[in-house]
Write a protein that binds this DNA or RNA. Structure first.
Lengths: 116, 116
DNA sequence: TTCGATGTTCGTGAAACGTCGAACAAGCTA
DNA sequence: TAGCTTGTTCGACGTTTCACGAACATCGAA
């Protein structure tokens, strides 16, 4: 496990963000993280193999949507709300609303036992 | 040339919209159409072969972002601003702003002679 | 009717994507 | 030390995407 790359604020590209949000699993992950709380990798529940989940989290990270922090063998993920707001004002908010409207990504959630 | 399929308002899917906006050429096309005016196919200028341009316009159409109208052998394209606003309020506006910020899609424009 | 202009469709190829299981690396724990 | 847990990485596979030129269909003009 090596240190993950996170794009700087100014490096966040719109087309990458859009591409990252073009997959239901990833949209679901963003929805789960939408409340701004940090979540452990293990708390995330998605109907894919763990290698696939790792891949999707990487895409989100590379696009600048999330930040991953490592602690021992565990990882914690957060949505980069402030950075996104600074880079593309209003985008995240509106996209989160759109996710609700379309109810996309609802197959992703938190493992039982995670606090709401 | 057969009649193109346009998704209904309620059929417009967020992930498809996002996917459609994950390509610089298509973002550029949306920017060109952002003022709400109808544009002829021939007015559009993009650094790709015409078959490729046709492909991109199809992706935009299938995603519900644009509407294509046929008149004789010519096609006219418009952005479905009202439909998008109804389906995902605020999304288009915010994305258009983000396009400006990132200056993505500026390689696409109008052919000389088209009124601003 | 013949010609030219206009887009779409087809065939192709290269690249990217989503998915999986297996293998791996790194750090706790016993 | 050995073993377990956690997540990443590595092929492999099939699908999708983007790109092009060529062929085609359709309509208007000559």
């Amino acid at each position: 496990m090596q240190k993950a790359h996170h794009p700087e604020l100014g490096e966040i590209a719109l087309t990458e963000v859009m591409g990252a949000l073009s997959d239901p699993i990833r949209v679901g992950l963003v929805r789960v993280l939408a409340d701004g709380r940090e979540r452990g990798w293990g708390q995330l529940r998605a109907p894919v193999a763990k290698s696939t989940l790792s891949h999707h989290l990487r895409v989100l990270r590379d696009a600048g949507l999330t930040r991953t922090r490592q602690e021992g063998t565990r990882c914690y993920v957060t949505l980069r709300r402030d950075d996104l707001q600074a880079r593309f004002p209003g985008l995240l908010q509106v996209v989160l609303s759109a996710m609700e409207i379309d109810d996309v990504g609802s197959q992703v959630g938190l493992r039982d036992g995670a606090d709401p």
